[in-house]
Amino acid sequence: MSKKQILLINDMAGYGKVATAAMLPILSYFGHPTYNLPTALVSNTLDYGKFNILDTTDYIKGVFPVWKQLGFSFDAIATGFIVSERQAAIISRYCLQEAAKGTVIYVDPIMGDEGKLYNGVTPAAINSMREMLGVAHLCYPNYTEACYLTGRPYRAEGVSYDEALGLLRHLRKIGPKSVLITSIPVDGQPSVMGYNHEDDSYFQLPYDEIPVHFPGTGDIFSAVLIGHLLNDEPLTDSTRKAMDAVYTFINLNKDNEDKNRGIPLEQYLDVLNQ
C-alpha cells in the first residue's frame, strides 16, 4: 500500500506533547510521510497558565508561494489551532485551492473545552474556525467547540440524542462534508456523534471516561483517526480506533505526576498496533 503524504497546519509547542508535537510521531508511526507548517510557536502547553506565543502568519504567507513554485502537493491537509482571522483567511484559501486538486482537508477547530475557550483564544477565533469548516471534508469539534460554532448553549449535563443530531445538522450547514462531535454526553453517556456524507448516515459511539485531564488528547485522537482514514478505512471504524487509542494512552499514563506536559507518546506507540 502506498502511503499518503499529509501536511499538518497546527501550532508547535516547545514543551509538551500537544498539537504538532503530538501528531507527528503518531502519523509517522503509521508510515505516512508527514510535513508541518506551524501556525504559532508556543513556549509550552497552555495548562501551565504562563506561556509565550509567536504568531507565524507572515511566515505562512511567504511559504505558500514558494511551495507553489516548487510544485509541492499533499494527499491530505490537517488543520488545528488558528491564531487569527487573517491567518484563517490565508490558510482556508490555500486549503480550498488544494482541495480543488483532490487534497482531502481535515479540520480540528481547536478553541476550547468544558464550556469555555482556552487560554489565549479570543471570540474572534469562532469566525476563523467557521471559515475553516467551510473547506473541510471532515471536521471534528468537541462538544464545547460545536456549541460555539453553532451559537447554541452549552450544557454540562449534555444533550438528548435528538439534540445531538440537531447539533450535527447545524455544523453541516457551515459547510463540512462529514462531521464528528467528540466528548459529548448524549442521554448521560459520553459519546462521539458523527455524520458520514459518503453514505448519508448518522452514528453514535459511546465510551467510558477516565477522570483524568491531559492536554493533547484531542490531537492524539485526530492523528490516529487520520492515520486510519489515510489507510482507506471507513469513518466509523477509524473513529472507534482513535477513541480506543486515546483511552489506552490515558489509562497507561493516568498516574503521571506532571500531566500538564501531555502524554509521552514515544514510549507507547505500539498501542497503535492493537
Rank of each mutant, 00 (worst) to 15 (best):
F72M: 15
G31F: 10
L24E: 14
P65W: 02
G62R: 07
L171T: 04
S2N: 15
N273A: 11
A21H: 12
K241H: 09
G227H: 05
F214H: 10
A89Q: 14
I174G: 00
L180I: 06
G14I: 02
F221D: 07
V42C: 01
G80Y: 05
L46Q: 07
N251W: 07
I110W: 06
Y48Q: 01
W67S: 10
D232A: 11
L46S: 09
Y94W: 14
I226F: 10
N273R: 12
G188N: 06
F51S: 03
L27E: 04
A88C: 09
E266H: 14
V192W: 07
G175K: 04
L167T: 00
H228N: 15
T103R: 05
S160T: 15
T39H: 01
K61D: 11
P190F: 00
K241E: 08
Q97S: 14
K177G: 13
I105A: 01
F214Y: 09
G62A: 03
S128Y: 03
T79K: 08
L252E: 10
L230Q: 07
D113G: 06
L168I: 14
G115T: 00
G218P: 04
K3H: 11
Q97M: 15
L27R: 09
N256C: 13
I90Q: 06
K177D: 13
A242F: 09
P25H: 09
